[in-house]
Amino acid sequence: MKKLKKRYAALRFKIDKFLRKNNINNKYSFNKILSYKNKYKNKRCFIIGTGPSLEINQLELLKNEYTFSMNSIVLSFKDTSWRPTYYFIQDGRAFKKLKDKILPLDKKKIFIGINYRYDGVKIDDKEFYKCNFYPLYMRPDEKIYKIKFSDDCYEIVWDGTTVVYSILQMAMYMGFSEIYLMGIDCDYTSGDKKNIVEYVNNTNNIITESKMLYTFSLAKQYANKKGIKIYNLNEKGNLYMYPRKNLFEVLKRGNNNVC
């Protein structure tokens, strides 16, 4: 039954994609995505995960930077005045748990992945229709080696086992040419806590980790072709394919973004 539902969701996605490309209305309007194409050309940004390496006091240093974050980061807002430029969520379980915390945010800064699957995000509050939606494609066979990296997020955003993969696609679509990763440890075997704020039972394991590492390598390949630089600001963790940098050294270099 689950396999059938996954195939049905994939079919719905393809139908919606056809309608969108032919300017026919559909339930979720993805048209807002178009306004972000190359909006931040040649700027830098920070993608902030919720892994154990992230320290809350680091967030205060990023108030004048373009930042992306996700999921349970909203539970840390009581401890910091920093807010991400853009907030992403695409997991139905996380959305259900966190939507009361997400609802007060500026809707123009919220990005929600819609995939039509039974375990996807379900929008049942009219307020959320003011958010940005992106078309998240999850392959029904879930074969990781068949995943791609999108160069047109209005058409498709490929699921890569982690919302960070979606953000990477969107950040490059927006034109960012220098991307820094923070709090993205990609380490599910060390026994450390998995989020700065726990909100769901974490079932990720070494198989999930290996899938994530594969999709991060796809992002690197795409970035290399486009001349985009991706750096890892974590001293630890298994995200080894990106050169490591020190956050304070990066910030000391200055910021010509001025957001």
Rank of each mutant, 00 (worst) to 15 (best):
I179S: 06
P243S: 07
Y188P: 08
T189M: 03
G191M: 05
D152G: 10
S177W: 00
T189F: 02
D152H: 09
S210D: 14
K229D: 11
D141V: 12
L247Y: 09
S166A: 10
Y129H: 14
K245D: 08
L181T: 08
A223P: 10
Y188R: 03
S177K: 03
D159Y: 10
M172C: 04
E198D: 15
L181H: 07
M170V: 09
L181R: 06
M212Q: 14
K226L: 07
K245C: 11
Y173N: 02
Q169N: 10
I179R: 03
G160A: 05
F216L: 05
T215S: 06
G254Y: 04
I228Y: 01
N204I: 07
N195A: 12
D192H: 14
L218V: 15
N202C: 08
K211M: 09
M170A: 06
F216I: 01
M172E: 04
Y145C: 07
I184G: 02
K146W: 12
N224W: 13
I228L: 01
M212G: 11
G227K: 01
I144T: 11
M182T: 06
M174H: 03
Y137F: 15
R139C: 13
K148E: 15
G183R: 00
Y134W: 02
M138K: 15
Y145G: 12
N246C: 13
K252E: 15
T203C: 10
M174K: 01
D187F: 01
L181W: 04
Y154T: 07
Y231L: 01
L247T: 08
S150N: 05
L168Y: 04
V163H: 00
I207S: 13
I147D: 14
N201T: 15
D192M: 11
D151Y: 09
I147K: 13
F176A: 03
E235I: 15
D152I: 05
S190I: 06
S150E: 01
R139D: 15
R139M: 14
N255C: 05
Y199S: 11
S210P: 10
N132C: 03
G175P: 01
K194H: 15
S177N: 06
I167G: 03
L251F: 12
A223T: 08
D185T: 08
I230L: 01
T208D: 05
K143Y: 05
R244C: 06
N201R: 12
I156K: 08
I179G: 08
P243E: 07
K245N: 13
D152Y: 03
T189H: 04
N234V: 08
